[in-house]
Design a binder for these strands. Structure first.
Lengths: 309, 309
DNA sequence: CTCCATTGTTCAAAATAATGAACAATATAT
DNA sequence: ATATATTGTTCATTATTTTGAACAATGGAG
């Protein structure tokens, strides 16, 4: 590109500001450090202004740089929207769909779904990132994410894909040895395993005939990984509260058995969430529609229960 | 620039759309045709979409191209604002000031003004385009223009720089031969020269003790150039209505003599006009301020009249 | 219909930009 | 204090882009 292009160097400059470093920007853009350096110098020459104060170890924006960055950010956002607008014109989804999802749900239910979706749409490529950390959709460049929560994140567009029932389970052997609780309060005599990612891991909530019940629970195993807890439950270590999408197989084959079914709390939800943009790309819309149809209000993983609720 | 820059090719694409031609865009950008061609191809490849239908002789936008152009235009406008924002931060005006002005006013009064302005501001470069055609400020890339009119163009920001009085003049010799008119109606017996750029060249307006008077005028010389008319008036060909900034020298040295002074209409105005942008560059602000101070409500070219009005 | 000027594309040669290792500078850890 | 790792810049080499002329395609003028 000729040096007279008014957009030249803006993307590199914004990357430097956001990475707060030339080297960081180079890594993010897959450039060389040298190229970033000359790119910024050229931009500064063209504008006749110093944008960045750089001492070998510390980087800071000048006043001019701060003003120019605000515009640069807007320019790049507009460019992203321009591409989204094109994607939104496609009848058939195309391109790369970048999805973030919780590890357990992804492994158990997204794999098959994605395979089927890709078969239906040959021009789609998928990049699936399974991760239980809370990611920043926009910052990290995802098109969308699957979130399991009580209420959707209001800063994002959310589409409910399925209910997520959670049930109290232990192995039949465990129940035989310790007795089957008839009321949530009976859990005080049990060894209850807790999941560290919850807001309040030490409290379980139920819904009885007289309304919601909260009971404190405790036990010998606390983990931030559902699979570990479920595995321990199967081995008779204790009682687990698990989403049905997660324990349905074990329920069917008898490794686990539900207790306190009459006290099951209202389900939380599986959501698809994506940033609020002017244009929703065809690939995101198509995938979300596909998942909503595939899971739905009566998801296949709750089939063991006979019918819904 | 690496091919992953999301802004790559956008400026070239917009230029092609606006020039409605690859060759035209190449000329405007001072590129080669070939470079424009590859640039557009690369952009289309990157977006995976055809933006332009091109048959050797005719160019048209696809639906995708139209959508993408709207965004491209916004991106480039934002880039221009980014540069203006930097200029607006300067205390001292810098860079190139592109000015459009009417030929006659420019030659007589802008030359000296610009010279003085440049002396006061060493970092300023000026590109002066004298032209009596109506130019499109934004389209043609001017920072500002000087306009002489009754009312400012409301689509632009206008700053009144000076009044522009217009007086009826002829050579003393002419007046001696044909008699000095005492009332606008007397002009019907005179050979009146008319200026083709006016809305209604065949009607002159005056303001008498009883309000505004319009009289039809006609004569043997009609021209679209004020200098030709003024020259003819000096040679005794007929009567001219001329702006005082234009005929002041001839009035002082006696080549021309005013008639109907008591019927002089309200002055029109000399305006500085510039596009409405978020940031006014320091160079435009400084130049407009400078001109307003230099000309003002009592411009030096009306000094022959003693005092104002 | 036949020129004719001009369009967009193509391709070898020339100009420009990116790479990647070497370098001096500087915070942090020991 | 000293060592260390990482920063931003520089420079010769490599890779990419631009140029400019040749070319086929096309719409208008006579």
């Amino acid at each position: 590109m000729l040096a007279t292009d008014p957009l030249d160097g803006i993307a590199v400059f914004a990357a430097v500001v956001e990475a707060e470093s030339f080297s960081g920007a180079a890594r993010r853009l897959k450039y060389s450090k040298g190229a970033v350096s000359t790119q910024i110098q050229r931009l500064e020459d063209r504008l006749g202004v110093r944008l960045l104060n750089r001492t070998t170890r510390k980087l800071s924006l000048t006043d001019e740089g701060r003003a120019f960055y605000a515009h640069s950010r807007r320019i790049l956002d507009e460019a992203r929207e321009a591409m989204d607008a094109l994607d939104a014109l496609d009848a058939e989804p195309r391109g790369v769909l970048r999805v973030n999802a919780p590890m357990s749900f992804g492994v158990l239910h997204l794999g098959a779904a994605i395979a089927e979706f890709m078969q239906a749409h040959p021009a789609i490529e998928v990049e699936l990132d399974l991760n239980d950390r809370r990611v920043d959709l926009i910052e990290d460049g995802y098109d969308m994410a699957i979130r399991i929560a009580r209420l959707p994140d209001s800063s994002l567009i959310a589409r409910r894909l399925a209910p997520c029932r959670r049930v109290v389970v232990a192995s039949p052997n465990y129940w035989d040895r310790h007795g089957r609780p008839q009321h949530p309060n009976d859990l005080k005599d049990h060894d209850v395993m807790t999941y560290a990612y919850l807001d309040d891991p030490g409290t379980w909530t139920f819904k009885g005939p007289d309304g919601r019940i909260s009971v404190p629970v405790k036990g010998r195993l606390r983990a931030n990984n559902g699979e570990v807890l479920l595995d321990a439950a199967k081995r008779g270590i204790g009682v687990d509260m698990a989403p049905t999408f997660f324990c349905c197989d074990a329920l069917i084959n008898g490794e686990l058995e539900i207790a306190l079914a009459d006290f099951e709390d209202d389900p939380i939800s599986v959501y698809a969430v994506y940033p609020h943009r002017r244009h929703l790309t065809t690939r995101v819309r198509a995938f979300v529609d596909f998942l909503a149809a595939r899971f739905g209000e009566d998801p296949y993983w709750d089939a063991w229960a006979g019918s819904s609720n």
